[in-house]
Simulated assay, not measured.
Amino acid sequence: MTSNNATHSPLYAKLLAETAKIGWTELERFFARGMLLRVARDIDLVSVAEAIASDDTTQVAQWLSSGLVERVQAETAADLAARDPDLWAVVVSPWVCVQERN
């Protein structure tokens, strides 16, 4: 995981330490509650979590409007359940940010 920042904030380091590989079955309950955010592969999962945690509404709004971050929809959930790919997740209450890895 890389970021544009040469040095990371303490919050970034904390979130990075809390990021873990996870299976779809463990994420289904968060999807059911509408709390699961999908992060596109081409942006840093931890940077997204950091922006959400620090209430950087401008940056989060840009990602949302460009589709780089989105609430997981039923079609995406069905695809993830069928394929069960490698996923990484980090919790930024009430959200769980998830990203598929190659």
Rank of each mutant, 00 (worst) to 15 (best):
P10S: 06
L68Q: 11
L16G: 05
P94A: 09
E75H: 10
V46C: 09
A78R: 12
E75D: 14
R29F: 09
V69H: 07
I22L: 01
E50T: 11
I43K: 10
A32Q: 15
F30M: 08
R71V: 12
E18S: 05
P10M: 03
R29E: 06
V72C: 06
Q99A: 05
S3E: 03
G67V: 05
P94F: 14
A53V: 00
S93D: 15
V48H: 14
I52P: 01
V46E: 07
L64F: 10
P10R: 09
V91T: 10
A51E: 01
L45E: 03
N5L: 15
E70P: 01
P85Q: 13
R41E: 15
M35K: 02
V39D: 08
Q62T: 09
R41S: 12
G34S: 11
A40D: 14
L36I: 09
Y12M: 01
V69F: 12
V39L: 07
R83T: 02
L36F: 09
A17K: 12
T19D: 11
S9W: 01
R101S: 12
I43E: 10
A89F: 08
S47F: 10
W88T: 00
L16F: 08
V98A: 02
R101F: 10
T25V: 10
A17S: 14
A74K: 13
L87S: 07
S93T: 13
V96H: 04
S54E: 15
T19K: 06
R71G: 09
Q73V: 12
D86W: 04
A74E: 09
A40F: 04
S66I: 01
E70G: 05
L27K: 03
Y12G: 01
I22Y: 02
K21P: 02
